[in-house]
Design a protein around this nucleic acid. Sequence first.
DNA 1: GTCGATACGTAC
DNA 2: GACGTACGTATCGACG
Length: 913
Amino acid sequence: MSRLVLIDGSSYLYRAFHALPPLTAPDGSPTGALFGIVNMLRATLKENPDYVAFVVDAPGPTFRDELYPQYKANRPPMPDELRAQVEPMMQIVEALGFPILRVPGVEADDVIGTLALQAHEAGIPVTISTGDKDFAQLVRPGITLTNTMTGSITDDAGVVEKFGVRPDQVVDLLALMGDTVDNVPGVEKCGPKTAAKWLAQYDSLDGVMAAAADIGGKIGENLRAALHRLPLNRELVTIKTDVALEQAPQALKLRERDADALRGLYARYGFNAALRELEGGKPDPATRPAQATLAAATHAAEEAPDPALAAPGEYECITGSDALAAWVERLQAADLVSFDTETDSLDPMRANLVGLSFAVEPGKACYIPVGHDYPGVPAQLPRGQVLDALRPVLQDAGKPKLGQHGKYDLHVLRRHGVEVRGYAEDTMLESFVFDAGGLRHDMDRLARKHLGYQTIKYEDVAGKGARQILFSAVALDDATRYAAEDADITLRLHRVLSAKLAGEPTLQTVYRDIEMPLVPVLARMEATGVLVDAAELRRQSADLSQRMLAAQQRAHEIAGRAFNLDSPKQLGALLFDELKLPVVVKTPGGAPSTNEEALEAIADQHELPRLVLEYRGLAKLRNTYTDKLPEMINPDTGRLHTSYHQAGAATGRLSSNDPNLQNIPIRTADGRRIRTAFIAPEGRRIVACDYSQIELRIMAHLSRDAGLLRAFESGQDVHKATASEVFDVPLDEVSGDQRRAAKAINFGLMYGMSAWGLARQLGIGRGEAQDYIALYFGKYPGVRDFMERVRQQAREQGYVETVFGRRLQLAEIHSRNQAQRAGAERAAINAPMQGTAADIIKRAMVSVDAWLAGHRDQAAMLLQVHDELVFEAEAGFVDTLVAEVRRRMEAAASLDVALVVDVGVGRNWDEAH
DNA sequence: GTCGATACGTAC
DNA sequence: GACGTACGTATCGACG
């Protein structure tokens, strides 16, 4: 069937200009927009449309200007860089053979609308190629929109999805929203969401206008104030479909292209891929212009795995002494031993060893069961005998071992009397340094991604949910297939990942010098655990419970009925539906939020919000900390053992879980009290060492901003020093509010915060916040340049880097979704600072642990909280420890600004701060 | 009963 | 929409 494609040239030109980097031709003339247009045209040609037209605006006034003299009055003149690309664009369009339509006195939109409808009536399907959402009003069965820059196609369902209204309601939606670019004011504060909501309720603009009196709140007032404008708006946003045109759609045939002219134009503007295509060759990735390769680069990692990698393996179950001896010999002879353990628990501090598996060459692996126990289980080798036989291999630091998340296995084996040395490779960490921020790094996923191999899942052999059985109850042949596969796949994965890593020396250094040495250090910290005063926590729980009950009873009294204080839904219904308190914050789901900010905002209007806040604070402490921590104390050690996740956070930070000891409260008095329960044993002290302002120092280093560097050199409180500079007052005259503002800016900037966010944070106006930021950047221009550089790097490379070369991937940086893209840009700004801080403390941990190796009886490293290391030490050893730890932490990186470590000592963690 | 999504809140 | 990185708890509704 034949088809008509109508190209909205003007909209593409503007959008390509703003979306693409300011590329230049070999001769220096701007080509960014042109490049976008050329790619769009080539994409259109690949579709082989029967009829096609390239439509652009003609100069001069149109009917809309007559209707509304202010129409487009605020539109800035076309930038010179863009204007310079208009003529070349027309030449290329012409040379490609596209019919060009430019009708005086008629906007391109109306030409397109008219042609679309004419073709539609003639039974010809129409595709409108545009970046302009207004065309959604023309969509119907047979007329669709396409945007080749984003790859999106919009049909009826697409309109509903995108706007939340039917295509025939789009005009009404646009009339309500208005259009700032065209200087058409809509209803103030009414965006697409509100407009769609009203239209869902009242069906049409006329319906909304008729119901205007019933709509409450500020926005209702705004609507009533805008009523008189709305009919005109509707007329302005309606695309005409009845313009008098000379050509019928059927006349819009593509002419033959002018290859000579094209060759000249492409060469002149440096469009190499297009040139190559013209010559009949295939596009060459190496010479593609920058952003074409860039878009491809984000997907390039997914090269097809070699089918041979996914071949099934031969797995042996070892239940006899001879077979064991033979395998030990193979392990002794191997360059690298892949190993894995099977247990009966996910908690490595409690798990019992059920079996071990090994592989030394791809496809060949064994499973050695030592603890399977079910009716009719075959005889197995005694665990002691197996571990004795394996110990020489596993404990030999000169025999490199390989695992997947081997820290777990190190724990299990240590608790069974085997001290693994020479743990040299870990596929989880190899994958992590390659793609932090990408998918998770569990073996199943890695196998699918890099080997194209579907592993047997744990639940396939052990079941799941209530029916899950212990691994010790799994039949030996099932267990062998599952367990031997783990060792085998780990080895195969390592072959692939280590080869990839070899091609990236910087990443290899991060892996080899930071991540791998950290594994035994973390294992040691986890194994040591921290002593917790369970009785103290239980006392606190009792106290909290009492106060919670009081708050709850009072809340029910005030409400006049019982309700669940823990249910945001019930609470929201009470506060906002029954009591009609104002809604200041909405949840991401659109419901009225009952979060702290929302309750604070209405706390002066009713007693209830304050009580809820009180209750929430108490409940959080009890439910998350004082009730839970005592339960998690390990009965064998009497201590609390967290588990650090080394490949979790996209920035390279560690995370802590089971329990999370990185979010123990400190800000409020009640919360802080929990830290008094983290204690040192008799005769010992808790020592807490934290980096002072490490991320801000890293920002000073990375930005090389002279002013910020100076602020640190002075050795003063840095927020005060910045306040003094920014507000131009002597250091000792900085007011509390000025310091608070400077601190908020310092931190906010590191998180990519906007003026809007700063205003909210400080409770000031947006304009004032903007002024602060301008003042700040005026004093610290290097910081602003740095931010821009990072954004640029993120867009060009799809990742950013830490000082040590760790790569932080930003998958969403080219997302078509504006919010996601903006989020990725903020993450990009934060990542080099957060990530460098993570690198530094990891290096410090390795260094400190190496020193502690000679003093294991006197001190131990217990916890890491991103910028803080917590130790316990014999009282008489504290001074030595402090001196050595401080020296090593401060020397973990050499930046343009000094690293400073603050130290506290006490009988518990609270005192040590 | 289990699971996942959502809302909320703690840390740095 | 609007401030980055985590983890844990409670509720609630879908699902089997």
